[in-house]
Write a protein that binds this DNA or RNA. Structure first.
Lengths: 267, 267
DNA sequence: CGACCTGTGAAAATCGTGTGAACGCAGGCA
DNA sequence: TGCCTGCGTTCACACGATTTTCACAGGTCG
């Protein structure tokens, strides 16, 4: 879901000069590039999670039209930009009618090629944004961006908007430790003031609501001096030793105590 | 699944030769054309229900960039194709980054121009045409697009046009939370100004009319900080606890209070 | 042990939504 | 033309819901 900026572009071309220059610029812009010098099965492209492909049909020989037709048909969400040497109006029209999104002619400035890829991607994302945003599942938890809400065991956690966005960010980068500054920056949208504890407070609210609906899982882990990490773990892993070493004191099993059990990890 | 739907294209250009030829072909293809020789306010384009515009920025003089920026910003659903005489890479890149969908250079074959317009328009109408047509039923409600009206228990709700369109949009995406911006964008056709409360006001009107004809159902749910969700629910679910905890104050059971009972959910 | 972090509860400040009413515009009608 | 009416837009206020802030308690690390 962090694809706000990053574009994943597949390049199918043998013109190493052009590709090299393009790759340099694209990577400088933070894009992810996948290059090949031959046809790639549509399904593989799905696996690569490409936003768009830039392709010189000359590479494909006779198969070119068939291949383009197949790609456009099978991957309606993929942006397809063709980049050829000389071409006729008839070819371009045929290509565009086939479902190709843009047709550029070499020699072309790599910056323009990139701008066109962006344009195609932008249009794609816009039309797709309604239905996309697949639900995220982690442990007993289900995060549904389309509902701005998370569920456990079918029940809503009743998250407020910020709570949801925080959880969404965390769940999206499962397993990663996020610093407070980073979190604030991404959820609140601007720089965190020194001494601001909002993140901590919201983490607590999230933990409370998570605990309420899904008591047997530990989702949010504290990294002392750093930040937080989302990683669903069935509860009881760390508890075992602690409990085992403390046979008495049954009254400690109340909820406030359980909350403490959210694992705290070093650095 | 070709878009046999007609394309409504706005043309802003003074190059009568080009325009004439284009118009001829476009009309032969069954498109609807609107030509002007000067800037058209974005809102007017909404009224014309254009799918895309083809524009030569030379016509606009110094205002060109501003105008294009404004159009792209306010009408994210409109396809924008620029068609110029000579142009530099820098200009094209700037335009494309601004939000323009395609940039063609004259002289260009009208057939190619049309193919590019189609390409830009393609995705949008695909996703849109699926949900058209058939009457929608939800709870006691029946939404009939053919009548521009909704009915409950056989009686019309007497919706105005905007009310109907809003309800139609909501009912069409039953179960989904729609943000205000999205709603405005889709019903009003252009970007929502900051602080505009029209959506809220129309939601209230809808709720009133729904409540009047179908009192025992809750249809529209508020997601605090996000927007609204349409989901017909028999009334009385959330009410129980609230009412039970408030044995006194009988004068609160008047209608204005009942309206409050439309469930509000966090998000 | 002492300096720092983080968790917690509650008060204070801010923001979002429901609501009634006023305004302006366009079309219908005399 | 001038009045009336229906519709869409805008405004201000009320009332909560949410977010931020604060002070302190409890934990962690060197």
């Amino acid at each position: 879901m962090n694809s706000q900026q990053t574009i994943r572009l597949g390049v199918i071309d043998t013109d190493s000069g052009f590709v090299t220059v393009l790759a340099k610029r694209a990577e400088a812009a933070g894009w992810q590039l996948r290059q090949t010098t031959g046809a790639v099965p549509p399904q593989e492209m799905v696996a690569m999670k490409l936003n768009a492909i830039l392709i010189d049909p000359a590479v494909l020989g006779d198969e070119a039209w068939d291949y383009l037709d197949r790609v456009c048909g099978e991957l309606p969400d993929l942006g397809v930009i063709v980049c050829t040497g000389r071409s006729t109006v008839a070819q371009r029209v045929r290509g565009l009618r086939l479902g190709i999104d843009d047709w550029i002619t070499k020699p072309c400035h790599p910056e323009e090629a990139m701008a066109r890829v962006e344009s195609v991607t932008r249009r794609r994302r816009r039309s797709r944004s309604e239905t996309e945003a697949g639900p995220l599942v982690a442990g007993e938890l289900e995060v549904r961006p389309d509902q701005f809400q998370a569920f456990a065991a079918g029940e809503s956690l009743d998250l407020t908007r910020r709570e949801f966005e925080l959880l969404h960010l965390l769940a999206d980068s499962k397993g990663q430790v996020l610093e407070r500054e980073t979190i604030y920056q991404r959820v609140w949208g601007y720089a965190m003031a020194h001494g601001d504890r909002s993140v901590d407070v919201f983490i607590r609210k999230l933990r409370q609501k998570l605990e309420k609906r899904s008591p047997s899982w530990a989702y949010i882990h504290t990294h002392f001096g750093v930040g937080y990490r989302f990683d669903p773990e069935p509860a009881g892993i760390v508890k075992e030793e602690i409990r085992a070493a403390d046979p008495a004191a049954p009254e400690f099993t109340d909820r406030s105590q359980q909350l403490h059990d959210e694992v705290t990890v070093n650095s």
